[in-house]
Design a protein around this nucleic acid. Sequence first.
DNA 1: CATCAGATGTTATGATATCACATATGGAGA
DNA 2: TCTCCATATGTGATATCATAACATCTGATG
Lengths: 162, 162
Amino acid sequence: MDTIGFEAHDHKGCVRDAIAAVEAHCTRHKLQFTPVRRRVLEILLSEHRAMGAYEILDTLRTEGLGSQPPVAYRALDFLVTNGFVHKIERLNAFIACTHPGQDHTPAFLICRQCDAVAEAHAEPSKGMLGRAAADTGFTIEQAVVEAMGLCPQCRESVHPCA
Amino acid sequence: MDTIGFEAHDHKGCVRDAIAAVEAHCTRHKLQFTPVRRRVLEILLSEHRAMGAYEILDTLRTEGLGSQPPVAYRALDFLVTNGFVHKIERLNAFIACTHPGQDHTPAFLICRQCDAVAEAHAEPSKGMLGRAAADTGFTIEQAVVEAMGLCPQCRESVHPCA
DNA sequence: CATCAGATGTTATGATATCACATATGGAGA
DNA sequence: TCTCCATATGTGATATCATAACATCTGATG
């Protein structure tokens, strides 16, 4: 299954593996996985949640890795462009990809209560959206799919009657 | 068909009809369709494109209907909440709904070249997203579906070789 | 070792959105 | 009618998100 965001898991391992995967991908594609870029990805992987650019920047600042917004935004731009991090448009925030390197169209399940975000897999070219695009001659290059709602935990706490 | 955004149409008529539909809906549901709210909707309907809040505010300002951001944002909030206007997260912009009053989950086709936006219809509960949500126990309340790409016209102009 | 592309540092500013509080308006009930 | 209250609006200030512009550095390449 793709959706892993609402379950416990081996966190240290997932951070380590993701960094290794990105490192390998960068080497293979001659991309510069610089200290700032690596650190931003590490922060997002460790926190395992959607974070704003300025929140990330705060951490960088305490570590002497850059203190001005462009530093964070440039690193994020690199990571997003290469598919290692996704932007959650709805939250103006960023989250580490759960399977970096693989070509995919992410979809997100966002809890409005606790802000937890789970990454799932969308296939926008199939389904109604793809059909509508085909009908009108629109060429889809990229898609944002974000569902808002309640995660299992918060759903419980909202219904204490059970 | 739902997707009408890339084709010519009777524009005056569509503005008039939409306003009438919203007016009726507000009367039926005891909602206040005030001058500012009406004017913001008219602007969006007339322009028939995604507009930023401050761009709308500029127009209001010249008409003496309010000059501070909260005026525009409050009207937009009302219109979005009641489904008369949709927010395009990807553009931080707003667009009038093409079939107001009806309960629906909109999806958008956004041209990256000319910024034209077409509204289509999504059914997020079906398909992979709905399945992923069901699998994890996530309850979808609302969804953002936005496809970026090239509209038919811009696709032509990018490929002049044909 | 000259050059150049790409990355980073830094100042300033632009763009989007909300808070907080004052004021107005219109309907329900005393 | 008058009071109360919910809802809407006016306004100044500020929070939050993002980029422009330009200087500097560093490492690869010819």
